[in-house]
């Protein structure tokens, strides 16, 4: 039977600035999906862009090339990733006038 695990990276947290998700080791899995549930948006012209980053050590990061957004409204978004080695995170860029995003971010891994 295949292995699967969904890890909660952020839980209903209010973000007003750009941030990166907690570095995650995913070397056992060959498929990854970042789910980004936007539960609320505040401010004006608020937008969120999420970029996948990979790393060899969990501290130094490089842009992987996968991206979702810009996101303007409530709802579920996702990015599929493969060929990522071990370390994965999302670089989430927030822009706007007094922007706010309430987010639930989950990383789904499958082997």
């Amino acid at each position: 039977m295949r292995q699967f695990n969904a890890a909660p990276l952020e839980l209903k947290k209010q973000f007003k600035e750009s941030f990166q998700t907690h570095p995650f080791e995913a070397g056992w899995a060959s498929e990854a999906i970042f789910f980004i549930m936007v539960e609320d948006v505040s401010g004006s012209n608020s937008q969120l862009l999420a970029e996948v980053e990979i790393s060899h050590d969990g501290f130094n990061w490089a842009y992987e090339g996968s991206v979702v957004g810009p996101i303007y409204e409530k709802g579920l978004n996702f990015i599929k990733v493969s060929c990522f080695g071990n370390w994965l995170r999302l670089n989430c860029k927030i822009e706007g006038d007094n922007p706010g995003f309430k987010l639930l971010v989950q990383l789904a891994l499958k082997e």
Binding site: P8, L11, W87, L107
Partner: peptide, 23 residues
Amino acid sequence: DTRKSVVTKDQWPPVMLSSATYR
């Protein structure tokens, strides 16, 4: 939502399967 608490418990990071990979 969650009940208000003096200790914030939703920021303890996710646990994970690690290969203990370093620089």
